[in-house]
Design a binder for these strands. Sequence first.
DNA 1: AACCTTCGTGCAAATTATTTTCGTCTTGCG
DNA 2: CGCAAGACGAAAATAATTTGCACGAAGGTT
Lengths: 287, 287
Amino acid sequence: MDIFATLQHEKERLSQSESRIADILLNDFEFAVNASIIELAGKADVSPPTVTRFCRRLGCDSFSDFKVQLARTAYVGMRYLKPEPKSQEPGDVAQDIITKAQNALFLLHRSLDLAAIEQAADRLAGAEMIYAFGSGGNSSMIAGELQNRLFRLGLRITSSSDHSMQLMLTAAAKQSDVIIGSSFSGRNAELVRAFTLARDAKVPTIALTQTGSPVARAADITVPVDLPEGNNIYRPTSTRIAYVALVDIVASLVAYRVQPQATATLRRIKQQLVAHRDGDDRQLLGD
Amino acid sequence: MDIFATLQHEKERLSQSESRIADILLNDFEFAVNASIIELAGKADVSPPTVTRFCRRLGCDSFSDFKVQLARTAYVGMRYLKPEPKSQEPGDVAQDIITKAQNALFLLHRSLDLAAIEQAADRLAGAEMIYAFGSGGNSSMIAGELQNRLFRLGLRITSSSDHSMQLMLTAAAKQSDVIIGSSFSGRNAELVRAFTLARDAKVPTIALTQTGSPVARAADITVPVDLPEGNNIYRPTSTRIAYVALVDIVASLVAYRVQPQATATLRRIKQQLVAHRDGDDRQLLGD
DNA sequence: AACCTTCGTGCAAATTATTTTCGTCTTGCG
DNA sequence: CGCAAGACGAAAATAATTTGCACGAAGGTT
């Protein structure tokens, strides 16, 4: 639990003096993170003990613990509390996107359902064949990424972003297979249809999607991704970044489960690449 | 300049006692960031004054300034300096991947060539047709993402991960078109060939790749991405995350350049989606 | 209305942390 | 061998932080 989340949470219950301290944190973070308790107390027009009590209320052991927590979350957690930097300058745009992306990762990490991820990894590692579904640009990229990560581990996998194909593939799937589908909105009706069909046929399904959404309800295992969306329509959603990271996490866990097989497969892929390129074997597994 | 960079830089010049302090920072960061000067001194088996001197040497004003700097850079900058966190537990794997991803973003941001990005955005915004090339799984995903982002802005774009197609598309491209190619390693010989062909035909080219690589040399504009790679072969590269973010940045800048057109296109796409789904218009532009 | 109780607050003392000063010890060099 | 430079810690000095306590205001109770 980070400090700004706690602050948001406690905001109403703060006393007058404490609110003044909170204001300084929010408005002049740079000052707050560098100030001593005396300076901070002075600026907020309260006594040092009040600052200490404020820190305790926010769940910190002491003022210095508080400062550490503050400095630590600030880099990632801060800018959600501030309004958009409105500029269209490349530097600002870049900073905005990077920050949003880091934030998305931060929030993903915080809300990760590890148990569900483990279950999903178990299923994937044990599947005889995997079908990765996703549509609409974003999720189709994720389906492709699943394939891109998992075939390297020696697993059998195909991906599809084509609704009709998804239905046909589902109809052809066996109970020893797994279908994994991604939907950012959770409202991809065709994916729901495929999952429902799979359920009838007892083919296990995994969804990467929003909690409580139709897609989540239709799947056997849901790995939830619940992130707030930005509202600048020109700025592509940073949720994609979180999904990519989630795919990495799932793929890594699957890798550990199929380790010997994976090592061999990766070695063959690497040899193939090195032979094919210029022999520099520091290069990545796949360009 | 963050504190770990300074530490790397000064490492040789540190005295014995100071190295012991540095070791603690690197190995038991959690301890270091929470400890008082006395505790830290005790653990390093040195006296508190030595710790103070150590902090000063690293460019901090005082011990507490040092702690803030530490906490602040740590969240993102830390783990590249340490060997892999050994565990295969889901929690550790997740944390490792998230941290690496955030790190990749951090490093990307730090090394961004804004001038090159602007040039690239200008070219893309002015192109009559865009060809996005990339192969090998990772870069093909990026090429797909470029298409996914840019078509929404009303631009004409196609992507290809097929080397033969890339050559044919290049041969068919006009001088008013733009070819944009991604290569993580910079050693994709076929992409170099396509770029060379494009140069002969005076079709402008943009590369997202490593500085100084063959691909970079073959392109008119290079948007450099120079990131260290992790070495755990089971863990997919976080560089992908950085590339996705870079695509976002480029796409956002392009969006501002074609704004009226983009707004109209986005509105049409959104209408299409809302009509097609369940009418919840909070949903994303594309699932 | 008088009286509690609770809570927020600051003051001052106590505690704790940090920095400075100063002297010793080591090491490298002429 | 002697000297200078630097590293280091002990102890003193200083600064920061926390604790204990008392006061006063707000709100509730008799």
